[in-house]
Structure formats: structure tokens, C-alpha cells
Simulated scan of single mutants.
Amino acid sequence: MSLKFSVGDLTIHRIIEQETTFLPALDMLPGLTPEVLAENRAWMQESKALDPQDTLILCFQSYVIKTPHHTILVDSCIGNDKPRPQRPKWNMKTDDTYLRGLGAAGFAVEDIDFVMCTHLHVDHVGWNTRLENGRWVPTFPKARYVFGKQEFDYWTEQNAKADVAPFVDSVLPVVEAKRHEVVGNDHQIGDHVRILPTPGHTPGHIAVTMGRGKDDAVFSGDLMHSPIQALYPEMSVKFDVDQAAAATTRRSFLERYCDTDTLCCTAHFPSPSVGKIRRKGSGFVCAAL
């Protein structure tokens, strides 16, 4: 299983926290029918995207990218010590898998210059903070945490109506520590890192593109969760705030990168999670390298 990729002048590391069953495919994908599932069951099981009980298998991971100038972490996964009663595999977790994975890739928490969040869902912000003497503090003490303005404003508004646990324990402590930047979609970091708006899953969801002068790699976040959504781009997950917008965004994204050399680094596809977008019928595949 490959945890390291090189493209252009980037080196990309996958830091896996969990790779495990998540939800039944027919539950998570409201547009999926038993007939379409039956047609796709064999290749999905073969690619470890589906278990024998028709439950989707997802990877929960971060990417750490070394550019010539910076070390950037995209999406900080699930985290430890966080109360997540709806998700037993995430609730009050205390394992060292994530930090051990970071160390195995050759990084200490102090090495990260920027943490970029494609969106502010629970499994993408968890390691933004860690518990220290009963307080949430930034896990990556020297990093600037980059939040898209539309996404940050949306969750600020939601949190004002009723506490949103991941926002309270994994975003606001970063703000209180003054380690954050709230940025527009035109924001760039050096000459290598850009934002690509990809709304639908959440209103301010972004993908992150990297490379000097061209997109050598793109980090797609929750634009798609399972390889079957590449084959059927109109198939949204039930967690998409706007399922129709997510479907439009997904097809547009896949068309944009189809038959290019851009590495598509997905958040949740099963290992190896990274590939190049290729056309297949009226849909697409993320072809492993």
C-alpha cells in the first residue's frame, strides 16, 4: 500500500487514521438502487470499497505535502478525546495511530506550516486540536490554519443556533489561539497552493490544488466519498447539504481533471486513495497509479 507519492516538485504523504466499514451503501447513497449496487458489487468488493454485507469501506486520512517552500497538511481527520456519541469508532478515541503515522512519514507536529481544511466536518478537523491539561490547544503549534470564509461563516452561523461539537472543540480553540486565517477563494500560498471552490457537500466546501503553474495534484475532500460516485457522478451522499449542487460540482470536477496528469488525492476512497481521473462510459474512474 502506497503512502508516499511524488509529482512535479511535490512530495505527498498519506497519514491514515482509520480504514474501516462506515455505513450501508444503500443508506449512504440515497440515489443508489439495489439493481445498480448488484451491477457494481464485484468490482467494489475487489477494490475494497465494499464489504460482503454491502457496507461501504472508507479511509479517513490526512495528506501532508512538501512543496519547495512549505509543509502543508490537508484535512486533519478524526482526532482523540473528542465526544462523538453518534460514531462509536470516533467517540473519545485515545489511540496513537495518527501521530504515529505522522512520525513514520518523517514529520513532527512542529514541522507543519499550514493546516488547510476542505470543509469543517467532524472527520476533517479532529486533529486541529488536542487535549492538554483539560483545554483544547492547536495540535500543530507553529501552523497557520486556513479556513475558507464561506465555510467558516456557515458553521459560525450554525453554531450560534446550537452548539456544533466539532466547531466548538476543533475550530474555535484555534481561533482563540489566533492561529487561523479566514480566506477567500482567490487565496494562494506561495506559488504552489490554490483554492478551487467545490460547493455542495457543504456551502463553502473547497478542493485544494497544488503545483507550480499547473495542478500537479488536487485534494478533493468530500466532493466524493466512494469510487462508485466517480462512475455515477450524479449520485450524492446523504450528508451533502445540497445534493443537486454536489452532483453538478462532482461532474464538473471530474471533467476538469479527466485525462490529465493531475493526481487526484481523495479523502475517503479505499487505499491507495490516489489516482488519475479517466473516462469510463458516461462516468469516470480514479485509476490507481
Rank of each mutant, 00 (worst) to 15 (best):
G31C: 12
R84T: 08
Y257W: 11
S76F: 04
E234P: 00
E46H: 13
W90P: 14
D240N: 12
K276E: 13
S236R: 02
D215K: 00
S170D: 12
G281E: 10
P34D: 05
N91Y: 00
G221W: 01
D186P: 13
L26Y: 07
H124I: 10
L56C: 06
T209Y: 00
N133S: 11
G101Y: 03
L26G: 06
L73E: 11
A267K: 10
E39S: 09
M28R: 08
M44N: 05
N128K: 03
I195D: 00
G101R: 01
I12A: 04
F152P: 05
H119T: 14
K276L: 13
H119I: 01
P34Q: 06
S273Q: 10
E151G: 07
V74N: 01
D54G: 03
V137R: 01
T260A: 06
L131C: 12
K161T: 15
D75N: 14
H205E: 02
D95T: 11
P85Y: 01
V182C: 01
I12H: 02
P141C: 07
C286L: 13
F219H: 01
R278V: 15
R130D: 14
M28W: 14
V171R: 05
D153Q: 12
I189P: 05
V146R: 02
A49E: 04
L263V: 04
Q158W: 03
R256H: 11
H187R: 08
H124R: 05
R144N: 15
A207Q: 00
L263G: 07
C258Y: 07
L289I: 15
D259Y: 01
S47Q: 10
G283Y: 02
A160S: 12
S220H: 05
N40S: 08
D216H: 09
H180V: 06
D163V: 13
V241I: 12
N185C: 00
F219P: 06
F107C: 02
L102Y: 03
A105Y: 05
L289G: 14
I72Y: 04
T249A: 10
N40A: 09
Q86V: 09
G148C: 15
L73A: 07
D169K: 07
Q158F: 03
V74L: 03
V64P: 10
G106N: 00
S273F: 01
L23E: 14
D153M: 03
M235D: 08
F147P: 03
S226L: 15
